[in-house]
Design a protein around this nucleic acid. Structure first.
Ligand SMILES: [Mn+2]
Ligand SMILES: [Mn+2]
Ligand SMILES: [Mn+2]
Ligand SMILES: [Mn+2]
Lengths: 219, 219
DNA sequence: CAATTTTGTTAGATAGATCTAACAATGTAG
DNA sequence: CTACATTGTTAGATCTATCTAACAAAATTG
Protein backbone atom coordinates (compact mmCIF):
# COMPACT_ATOMS: atom_id res chain seq x y z
CA UNK A 1 0.00 0.00 0.00
CA UNK A 2 1.27 3.45 -0.92
CA UNK A 3 2.37 5.70 1.94
CA UNK A 4 0.83 9.14 2.21
CA UNK A 5 4.03 10.57 0.73
CA UNK A 6 4.02 8.15 -2.19
CA UNK A 7 0.37 8.95 -2.83
CA UNK A 8 1.15 12.65 -3.08
CA UNK A 9 3.98 11.96 -5.56
CA UNK A 10 1.69 9.78 -7.69
CA UNK A 11 -0.93 12.52 -7.76
CA UNK A 12 1.64 15.15 -8.78
CA UNK A 13 3.03 12.84 -11.45
CA UNK A 14 -0.46 12.25 -12.80
CA UNK A 15 -1.25 15.94 -12.96
CA UNK A 16 2.11 16.92 -14.50
CA UNK A 17 1.84 14.13 -17.06
CA UNK A 18 -1.34 15.54 -18.62
CA UNK A 19 -0.58 15.52 -22.36
CA UNK A 20 3.22 15.25 -22.33
CA UNK A 21 2.99 11.94 -20.45
CA UNK A 22 6.63 12.34 -19.37
CA UNK A 23 7.72 14.19 -16.26
CA UNK A 24 11.16 15.65 -15.44
CA UNK A 25 12.75 15.21 -12.04
CA UNK A 26 13.12 18.98 -11.63
CA UNK A 27 9.45 19.67 -12.46
CA UNK A 28 8.40 17.11 -9.91
CA UNK A 29 10.81 18.56 -7.33
CA UNK A 30 9.30 22.02 -7.84
CA UNK A 31 5.75 20.68 -7.65
CA UNK A 32 6.43 18.64 -4.49
CA UNK A 33 8.56 21.39 -2.92
CA UNK A 34 11.45 19.04 -2.19
CA UNK A 35 15.02 18.84 -3.49
CA UNK A 36 15.98 16.95 -6.64
CA UNK A 37 17.91 14.25 -4.74
CA UNK A 38 14.77 13.58 -2.72
CA UNK A 39 12.78 13.07 -5.92
CA UNK A 40 15.58 10.96 -7.36
CA UNK A 41 15.39 8.55 -4.45
CA UNK A 42 11.59 8.56 -4.42
CA UNK A 43 11.27 7.70 -8.11
CA UNK A 44 13.48 4.69 -7.46
CA UNK A 45 11.08 3.61 -4.73
CA UNK A 46 8.03 4.18 -6.93
CA UNK A 47 9.73 2.20 -9.69
CA UNK A 48 10.22 -0.77 -7.33
CA UNK A 49 6.46 -0.75 -6.80
CA UNK A 50 5.94 -0.66 -10.57
CA UNK A 51 4.08 2.62 -10.45
CA UNK A 52 6.46 4.26 -12.92
CA UNK A 53 9.24 3.66 -15.40
CA UNK A 54 12.58 5.26 -14.66
CA UNK A 55 15.89 5.26 -16.49
CA UNK A 56 18.88 7.34 -15.44
CA UNK A 57 18.83 10.87 -16.88
CA UNK A 58 15.45 10.25 -18.59
CA UNK A 59 12.11 11.75 -17.65
CA UNK A 60 9.80 9.35 -15.79
CA UNK A 61 6.48 7.88 -16.99
CA UNK A 62 3.66 6.44 -14.92
CA UNK A 63 2.75 2.84 -15.69
CA UNK A 64 -0.96 2.00 -16.22
CA UNK A 65 -0.90 0.66 -12.63
CA UNK A 66 0.54 3.97 -11.40
CA UNK A 67 -2.01 5.98 -13.38
CA UNK A 68 -4.86 4.00 -11.91
CA UNK A 69 -3.50 4.37 -8.38
CA UNK A 70 -3.17 8.13 -8.90
CA UNK A 71 -6.62 8.49 -10.45
CA UNK A 72 -8.20 6.70 -7.50
CA UNK A 73 -6.56 9.12 -5.06
CA UNK A 74 -7.74 12.05 -7.20
CA UNK A 75 -11.19 10.45 -7.13
CA UNK A 76 -11.15 10.53 -3.31
CA UNK A 77 -9.90 14.13 -3.35
CA UNK A 78 -12.62 15.37 -5.70
CA UNK A 79 -15.45 13.41 -4.08
CA UNK A 80 -14.36 14.92 -0.77
CA UNK A 81 -14.38 18.45 -2.19
CA UNK A 82 -17.85 17.88 -3.61
CA UNK A 83 -19.08 16.48 -0.30
CA UNK A 84 -17.66 19.41 1.64
CA UNK A 85 -19.35 21.91 -0.66
CA UNK A 86 -22.69 20.19 -1.33
CA UNK A 87 -23.27 18.39 1.96
CA UNK A 88 -21.38 20.42 4.53
CA UNK A 89 -21.83 23.96 3.23
CA UNK A 90 -18.19 24.88 2.62
CA UNK A 91 -17.20 27.43 -0.01
CA UNK A 92 -15.31 26.14 -3.07
CA UNK A 93 -12.29 28.14 -1.91
CA UNK A 94 -12.09 26.29 1.44
CA UNK A 95 -12.12 22.64 0.42
CA UNK A 96 -8.85 21.87 -1.34
CA UNK A 97 -6.68 21.91 1.80
CA UNK A 98 -9.07 19.63 3.68
CA UNK A 99 -9.39 17.24 0.72
CA UNK A 100 -5.59 17.13 0.50
CA UNK A 101 -5.69 15.29 3.84
CA UNK A 102 -8.94 13.33 3.51
CA UNK A 103 -7.81 11.80 0.18
CA UNK A 104 -5.35 9.60 2.14
CA UNK A 105 -7.98 7.87 4.23
CA UNK A 106 -8.23 4.15 3.56
CA UNK A 107 -11.93 3.38 3.89
CA UNK A 108 -13.67 2.48 0.62
CA UNK A 109 -17.12 2.59 2.25
CA UNK A 110 -16.56 6.16 3.40
CA UNK A 111 -16.04 7.40 -0.15
CA UNK A 112 -18.71 5.12 -1.61
CA UNK A 113 -21.18 6.63 0.82
CA UNK A 114 -20.13 10.18 -0.16
CA UNK A 115 -20.55 9.24 -3.81
CA UNK A 116 -24.00 7.83 -3.15
CA UNK A 117 -25.12 10.83 -1.07
CA UNK A 118 -23.93 13.17 -3.82
CA UNK A 119 -25.79 11.21 -6.52
CA UNK A 120 -22.65 9.96 -8.29
CA UNK A 121 -21.26 13.31 -9.46
CA UNK A 122 -18.90 13.46 -12.46
CA UNK A 123 -17.29 16.83 -11.73
CA UNK A 124 -15.91 18.43 -8.59
CA UNK A 125 -16.71 21.96 -7.31
CA UNK A 126 -14.03 23.44 -9.59
CA UNK A 127 -15.34 21.71 -12.71
CA UNK A 128 -12.65 19.01 -12.80
CA UNK A 129 -13.81 15.51 -13.71
CA UNK A 130 -14.07 12.87 -10.96
CA UNK A 131 -12.40 9.60 -12.05
CA UNK A 132 -14.67 6.55 -11.80
CA UNK A 133 -14.10 3.54 -9.50
CA UNK A 134 -11.84 1.96 -12.12
CA UNK A 135 -9.71 5.09 -12.25
CA UNK A 136 -10.95 6.07 -15.70
CA UNK A 137 -11.12 9.80 -16.22
CA UNK A 138 -13.48 11.41 -18.67
CA UNK A 139 -11.68 14.20 -20.51
CA UNK A 140 -13.89 17.16 -21.35
CA UNK A 141 -12.61 19.63 -23.92
CA UNK A 142 -13.57 23.05 -22.74
CA UNK A 143 -12.39 26.23 -24.39
CA UNK A 144 -10.38 28.81 -22.50
CA UNK A 145 -12.15 32.17 -22.19
CA UNK A 146 -8.96 33.75 -23.54
CA UNK A 147 -9.62 31.96 -26.86
CA UNK A 148 -13.14 33.36 -27.21
CA UNK A 149 -14.24 36.28 -29.36
CA UNK A 150 -16.35 39.38 -28.77
CA UNK A 151 -20.03 38.69 -29.30
CA UNK A 152 -19.93 35.10 -28.04
CA UNK A 153 -22.02 33.92 -25.11
CA UNK A 154 -20.40 31.27 -22.93
CA UNK A 155 -21.02 29.36 -19.69
CA UNK A 156 -18.29 29.16 -17.09
CA UNK A 157 -17.67 25.42 -16.76
CA UNK A 158 -14.32 24.81 -15.07
CA UNK A 159 -11.03 26.31 -13.88
CA UNK A 160 -7.45 25.42 -14.71
CA UNK A 161 -6.32 26.74 -11.32
CA UNK A 162 -8.16 26.35 -8.02
CA UNK A 163 -5.98 28.29 -5.62
CA UNK A 164 -7.78 29.93 -2.73
CA UNK A 165 -6.66 33.37 -3.94
CA UNK A 166 -8.08 32.87 -7.44
CA UNK A 167 -11.34 31.43 -6.07
CA UNK A 168 -11.67 34.41 -3.72
CA UNK A 169 -11.06 36.72 -6.69
CA UNK A 170 -13.96 35.02 -8.50
CA UNK A 171 -16.17 35.11 -5.38
CA UNK A 172 -15.56 38.86 -5.17
CA UNK A 173 -17.06 39.19 -8.66
CA UNK A 174 -19.94 36.75 -8.16
CA UNK A 175 -18.45 34.40 -10.71
CA UNK A 176 -19.33 30.75 -10.20
CA UNK A 177 -19.60 27.66 -12.37
CA UNK A 178 -22.68 27.83 -14.58
CA UNK A 179 -22.63 31.63 -14.86
CA UNK A 180 -23.55 32.79 -18.37
CA UNK A 181 -21.11 35.39 -19.68
CA UNK A 182 -21.67 37.65 -22.70
CA UNK A 183 -18.36 38.78 -24.21
CA UNK A 184 -18.78 42.49 -24.88
CA UNK A 185 -15.33 43.14 -26.28
CA UNK A 186 -11.74 42.02 -26.36
CA UNK A 187 -8.82 44.43 -26.07
CA UNK A 188 -6.20 43.64 -28.71
CA UNK A 189 -3.39 45.25 -26.72
CA UNK A 190 -3.41 43.21 -23.49
CA UNK A 191 -5.91 40.49 -24.46
CA UNK A 192 -8.23 41.54 -21.63
CA UNK A 193 -11.91 40.72 -22.08
CA UNK A 194 -15.00 42.69 -21.04
CA UNK A 195 -17.97 40.54 -20.03
CA UNK A 196 -21.50 41.08 -18.76
CA UNK A 197 -23.38 38.60 -16.55
CA UNK A 198 -26.04 38.66 -13.84
CA UNK A 199 -26.11 42.19 -12.43
CA UNK A 200 -22.56 42.89 -13.62
CA UNK A 201 -23.02 44.86 -16.82
CA UNK A 202 -19.34 45.44 -17.51
CA UNK A 203 -16.53 43.51 -15.84
CA UNK A 204 -13.02 43.53 -17.27
CA UNK A 205 -11.04 40.34 -16.92
CA UNK A 206 -7.27 40.28 -17.55
CA UNK A 207 -5.70 37.69 -19.82
CA UNK A 208 -4.17 36.05 -16.75
CA UNK A 209 -7.67 35.48 -15.39
CA UNK A 210 -9.26 34.57 -18.75
CA UNK A 211 -6.82 31.76 -19.49
CA UNK A 212 -7.79 30.11 -16.19
CA UNK A 213 -11.50 30.17 -17.00
CA UNK A 214 -12.78 27.23 -19.06
CA UNK A 215 -16.09 27.71 -20.83
CA UNK A 216 -18.70 26.07 -23.03
CA UNK A 217 -19.65 28.28 -25.99
CA UNK A 218 -23.40 28.81 -26.38
CA UNK A 219 -23.63 30.75 -29.62
CA UNK B 1 2.38 19.88 16.16
CA UNK B 2 2.01 16.25 17.16
CA UNK B 3 2.67 13.62 14.50
CA UNK B 4 0.00 11.04 13.80
CA UNK B 5 2.01 8.54 15.83
CA UNK B 6 2.37 10.90 18.78
CA UNK B 7 -1.36 11.62 18.65
CA UNK B 8 -2.15 7.91 18.90
CA UNK B 9 0.17 7.53 21.91
CA UNK B 10 -1.47 10.53 23.63
CA UNK B 11 -4.90 9.05 23.07
CA UNK B 12 -3.82 5.68 24.49
CA UNK B 13 -2.20 7.37 27.46
CA UNK B 14 -5.37 9.33 28.13
CA UNK B 15 -7.55 6.25 27.95
CA UNK B 16 -5.23 4.11 30.09
CA UNK B 17 -4.91 6.89 32.67
CA UNK B 18 -8.63 6.88 33.51
CA UNK B 19 -8.67 6.76 37.29
CA UNK B 20 -5.14 5.55 38.04
CA UNK B 21 -3.68 8.59 36.30
CA UNK B 22 -0.37 6.75 35.96
CA UNK B 23 0.52 4.49 33.05
CA UNK B 24 3.19 1.77 32.87
CA UNK B 25 5.48 1.42 29.89
CA UNK B 26 4.41 -2.21 29.41
CA UNK B 27 0.70 -1.37 29.47
CA UNK B 28 1.27 1.29 26.85
CA UNK B 29 3.37 -1.10 24.75
CA UNK B 30 0.56 -3.67 24.81
CA UNK B 31 -2.05 -1.05 23.97
CA UNK B 32 -0.03 0.42 21.09
CA UNK B 33 1.13 -3.01 19.88
CA UNK B 34 4.81 -2.03 19.83
CA UNK B 35 7.82 -3.18 21.84
CA UNK B 36 8.79 -1.66 25.18
CA UNK B 37 11.97 -0.03 23.83
CA UNK B 38 9.81 1.73 21.24
CA UNK B 39 7.58 3.10 23.98
CA UNK B 40 10.62 4.01 26.05
CA UNK B 41 11.99 6.19 23.27
CA UNK B 42 8.58 7.64 22.47
CA UNK B 43 7.88 8.72 26.05
CA UNK B 44 11.18 10.59 25.98
CA UNK B 45 9.99 12.40 22.86
CA UNK B 46 6.59 13.18 24.37
CA UNK B 47 8.33 14.45 27.49
CA UNK B 48 10.40 16.88 25.40
CA UNK B 49 7.12 18.33 24.13
CA UNK B 50 5.86 18.61 27.71
CA UNK B 51 2.93 16.31 27.09
CA UNK B 52 3.94 13.96 29.91
CA UNK B 53 6.18 13.53 32.91
CA UNK B 54 8.69 10.72 32.81
CA UNK B 55 11.29 9.51 35.27
CA UNK B 56 13.36 6.37 34.76
CA UNK B 57 11.64 3.21 36.02
CA UNK B 58 8.53 5.17 37.03
CA UNK B 59 5.14 5.08 35.37
CA UNK B 60 4.37 8.11 33.21
CA UNK B 61 1.74 10.81 33.76
CA UNK B 62 0.17 13.16 31.22
CA UNK B 63 0.62 16.86 31.95
CA UNK B 64 -2.49 19.09 31.76
CA UNK B 65 -1.21 20.15 28.33
CA UNK B 66 -0.95 16.51 27.28
CA UNK B 67 -4.41 15.73 28.63
CA UNK B 68 -5.91 18.59 26.70
CA UNK B 69 -4.13 17.57 23.50
CA UNK B 70 -5.40 14.01 23.92
CA UNK B 71 -8.95 15.09 24.73
CA UNK B 72 -9.09 17.23 21.59
CA UNK B 73 -8.10 14.25 19.44
CA UNK B 74 -10.71 12.13 21.19
CA UNK B 75 -13.18 14.94 20.48
CA UNK B 76 -12.42 14.71 16.77
CA UNK B 77 -12.71 10.90 16.91
CA UNK B 78 -16.09 10.93 18.62
CA UNK B 79 -17.54 13.77 16.54
CA UNK B 80 -16.51 11.82 13.45
CA UNK B 81 -18.20 8.64 14.71
CA UNK B 82 -21.37 10.60 15.43
CA UNK B 83 -21.26 12.22 11.99
CA UNK B 84 -20.75 8.88 10.25
CA UNK B 85 -23.72 7.35 12.07
CA UNK B 86 -26.16 10.27 12.13
CA UNK B 87 -25.34 12.03 8.87
CA UNK B 88 -23.92 9.31 6.64
CA UNK B 89 -25.95 6.29 7.68
CA UNK B 90 -23.19 4.03 8.97
CA UNK B 91 -23.83 1.42 11.64
CA UNK B 92 -22.24 1.98 15.06
CA UNK B 93 -20.08 -1.10 14.45
CA UNK B 94 -18.50 0.38 11.29
CA UNK B 95 -17.31 3.78 12.43
CA UNK B 96 -14.41 3.29 14.84
CA UNK B 97 -11.85 2.27 12.20
CA UNK B 98 -12.73 5.21 9.98
CA UNK B 99 -12.66 7.66 12.90
CA UNK B 100 -9.25 6.30 13.88
CA UNK B 101 -7.95 7.87 10.65
CA UNK B 102 -10.17 10.96 10.40
CA UNK B 103 -9.21 12.07 13.95
CA UNK B 104 -5.75 13.03 12.63
CA UNK B 105 -7.01 15.58 10.11
CA UNK B 106 -5.91 19.12 10.90
CA UNK B 107 -8.87 21.27 9.88
CA UNK B 108 -10.73 22.90 12.76
CA UNK B 109 -13.55 24.10 10.47
CA UNK B 110 -14.21 20.56 9.30
CA UNK B 111 -14.95 19.36 12.83
CA UNK B 112 -16.74 22.56 13.82
CA UNK B 113 -19.07 22.04 10.88
CA UNK B 114 -19.70 18.42 11.91
CA UNK B 115 -20.44 19.59 15.44
CA UNK B 116 -22.86 22.22 14.16
CA UNK B 117 -24.63 19.82 11.77
CA UNK B 118 -25.02 17.32 14.60
CA UNK B 119 -26.46 19.95 16.96
CA UNK B 120 -23.51 19.95 19.38
CA UNK B 121 -23.81 16.38 20.66
CA UNK B 122 -22.35 15.44 24.05
CA UNK B 123 -22.07 11.70 23.52
CA UNK B 124 -20.84 9.53 20.65
CA UNK B 125 -22.70 6.56 19.11
CA UNK B 126 -21.33 4.23 21.80
CA UNK B 127 -22.43 6.46 24.67
CA UNK B 128 -18.97 7.89 25.40
CA UNK B 129 -18.81 11.60 26.21
CA UNK B 130 -17.48 14.02 23.57
CA UNK B 131 -14.91 16.40 25.11
CA UNK B 132 -15.71 20.07 24.53
CA UNK B 133 -13.55 22.51 22.51
CA UNK B 134 -11.43 23.20 25.60
CA UNK B 135 -10.76 19.49 26.01
CA UNK B 136 -12.95 19.23 29.11
CA UNK B 137 -14.66 15.89 29.45
CA UNK B 138 -17.91 15.44 31.31
CA UNK B 139 -17.74 12.27 33.35
CA UNK B 140 -21.04 10.44 33.60
CA UNK B 141 -21.36 7.77 36.27
CA UNK B 142 -23.34 4.97 34.80
CA UNK B 143 -23.84 1.66 36.52
CA UNK B 144 -22.67 -1.56 34.96
CA UNK B 145 -25.53 -3.98 34.19
CA UNK B 146 -23.54 -6.62 36.06
CA UNK B 147 -24.07 -4.60 39.26
CA UNK B 148 -27.86 -4.48 38.87
CA UNK B 149 -30.40 -6.64 40.64
CA UNK B 150 -33.40 -8.69 39.52
CA UNK B 151 -36.55 -6.57 39.33
CA UNK B 152 -34.80 -3.38 38.26
CA UNK B 153 -35.66 -1.59 35.03
CA UNK B 154 -32.74 0.12 33.31
CA UNK B 155 -31.93 1.96 30.09
CA UNK B 156 -28.89 0.96 28.09
CA UNK B 157 -26.78 4.15 28.03
CA UNK B 158 -23.20 3.33 27.05
CA UNK B 159 -20.60 0.61 26.49
CA UNK B 160 -17.19 0.05 28.06
CA UNK B 161 -16.05 -1.75 24.90
CA UNK B 162 -16.90 -0.82 21.32
CA UNK B 163 -15.22 -3.56 19.32
CA UNK B 164 -16.92 -4.47 16.07
CA UNK B 165 -17.51 -8.03 17.35
CA UNK B 166 -19.26 -6.86 20.51
CA UNK B 167 -21.35 -4.32 18.57
CA UNK B 168 -22.37 -7.03 16.11
CA UNK B 169 -23.31 -9.26 19.04
CA UNK B 170 -25.60 -6.48 20.31
CA UNK B 171 -26.99 -5.84 16.80
CA UNK B 172 -27.90 -9.52 16.58
CA UNK B 173 -30.04 -9.10 19.69
CA UNK B 174 -31.59 -5.76 18.73
CA UNK B 175 -29.81 -4.07 21.61
CA UNK B 176 -29.08 -0.39 21.06
CA UNK B 177 -28.55 2.65 23.26
CA UNK B 178 -31.82 3.80 24.82
CA UNK B 179 -33.31 0.31 24.97
CA UNK B 180 -35.27 -0.26 28.19
CA UNK B 181 -34.37 -3.55 29.86
CA UNK B 182 -36.33 -5.27 32.60
CA UNK B 183 -34.13 -7.54 34.68
CA UNK B 184 -36.05 -10.75 35.10
CA UNK B 185 -33.49 -12.68 37.14
CA UNK B 186 -29.84 -13.03 37.96
CA UNK B 187 -28.09 -16.38 38.19
CA UNK B 188 -25.96 -16.58 41.29
CA UNK B 189 -23.66 -19.26 39.86
CA UNK B 190 -22.24 -17.49 36.75
CA UNK B 191 -23.62 -13.98 37.31
CA UNK B 192 -25.57 -14.15 34.04
CA UNK B 193 -28.65 -11.95 33.80
CA UNK B 194 -31.98 -12.60 32.08
CA UNK B 195 -33.63 -9.49 30.63
CA UNK B 196 -36.76 -8.66 28.65
CA UNK B 197 -37.04 -5.74 26.20
CA UNK B 198 -38.93 -4.87 23.03
CA UNK B 199 -40.09 -8.15 21.49
CA UNK B 200 -37.42 -10.14 23.34
CA UNK B 201 -39.24 -11.65 26.30
CA UNK B 202 -36.28 -13.59 27.69
CA UNK B 203 -32.68 -12.97 26.68
CA UNK B 204 -29.81 -14.32 28.76
CA UNK B 205 -26.69 -12.15 28.93
CA UNK B 206 -23.42 -13.55 30.29
CA UNK B 207 -21.43 -11.69 32.93
CA UNK B 208 -18.82 -10.92 30.27
CA UNK B 209 -21.48 -9.07 28.28
CA UNK B 210 -23.20 -7.46 31.29
CA UNK B 211 -20.06 -5.80 32.59
CA UNK B 212 -19.63 -4.05 29.24
CA UNK B 213 -23.17 -2.62 29.30
CA UNK B 214 -23.56 0.67 31.18
CA UNK B 215 -27.06 1.59 32.24
CA UNK B 216 -29.21 4.21 33.94
CA UNK B 217 -31.49 2.69 36.57
CA UNK B 218 -35.14 3.72 36.21
CA UNK B 219 -36.74 2.12 39.28
C1' DC C 1 15.46 -12.74 52.04
C1' DA C 2 16.96 -15.03 48.00
C1' DA C 3 15.42 -16.67 43.54
C1' DT C 4 12.69 -15.88 39.80
C1' DT C 5 9.69 -13.22 36.98
C1' DT C 6 8.31 -9.00 35.19
C1' DT C 7 9.23 -4.55 33.84
C1' DG C 8 12.16 -1.13 31.96
C1' DT C 9 16.53 0.63 29.74
C1' DT C 10 20.48 0.82 26.61
C1' DA C 11 22.78 -0.15 22.45
C1' DG C 12 22.75 -0.85 17.91
C1' DA C 13 20.27 -1.79 13.54
C1' DT C 14 16.80 -0.80 9.85
C1' DA C 15 13.61 1.66 6.78
C1' DG C 16 11.40 5.92 5.09
C1' DA C 17 11.76 10.65 3.84
C1' DT C 18 14.26 14.32 3.78
C1' DC C 19 18.55 17.50 3.35
C1' DT C 20 23.37 19.55 1.47
C1' DA C 21 27.65 19.22 -1.04
C1' DA C 22 30.00 17.53 -4.76
C1' DC C 23 30.07 15.91 -9.16
C1' DA C 24 28.40 14.24 -13.78
C1' DA C 25 25.51 14.33 -17.84
C1' DT C 26 22.72 16.94 -20.91
C1' DG C 27 21.19 21.00 -23.24
C1' DT C 28 21.87 25.68 -25.09
C1' DA C 29 23.79 29.84 -26.85
C1' DG C 30 27.25 32.21 -28.62
C1' DC D 1 32.01 23.30 -31.12
C1' DT D 2 33.07 24.99 -26.84
C1' DA D 3 31.54 27.27 -22.60
C1' DC D 4 28.06 27.86 -19.42
C1' DA D 5 23.71 26.72 -17.47
C1' DT D 6 20.50 23.40 -16.30
C1' DT D 7 19.31 19.02 -14.91
C1' DG D 8 20.20 14.80 -12.63
C1' DT D 9 22.97 11.58 -9.62
C1' DT D 10 25.81 10.02 -5.74
C1' DA D 11 27.44 10.16 -1.20
C1' DG D 12 26.73 11.02 3.24
C1' DA D 13 24.04 13.04 7.02
C1' DT D 14 19.71 13.69 9.90
C1' DC D 15 15.25 12.64 12.04
C1' DT D 16 11.35 9.59 13.06
C1' DA D 17 9.55 5.29 14.26
C1' DT D 18 10.39 0.97 14.72
C1' DC D 19 12.89 -3.57 15.90
C1' DT D 20 16.04 -7.30 18.62
C1' DA D 21 19.52 -8.55 21.94
C1' DA D 22 21.51 -7.77 26.15
C1' DC D 23 21.29 -6.14 30.50
C1' DA D 24 19.49 -3.82 34.78
C1' DA D 25 15.99 -2.60 38.17
C1' DA D 26 11.81 -3.67 40.57
C1' DA D 27 8.31 -6.72 42.01
C1' DT D 28 6.72 -11.17 43.39
C1' DT D 29 6.86 -15.43 45.52
C1' DG D 30 8.32 -19.37 47.94
MN1 LIG E 1 -8.46 20.18 -5.04
MN1 LIG F 1 -2.56 14.90 -0.07
MN1 LIG G 1 -14.15 4.85 18.64
MN1 LIG H 1 -5.78 7.18 15.15
Amino acid sequence: MASQTEENYLKSLFNLANEKSEVNISELATQMQVSMPTVNSMVKTLQKNEWLIYEKYKPVTLTPKGKKEAALIIRKHRLTEMFLVNKMGFGWEEVHEIAEQVEHIHAPKFFERMDEMLGYPTIDPHGSPIPDKQGRIQEINYLSLSDCKAGQTVILAALTNSSTEFLEFLNGRNLSLGTELKITSKEGYDQSIVVSYLDHSSETLSEKVCEKLLVKVLE
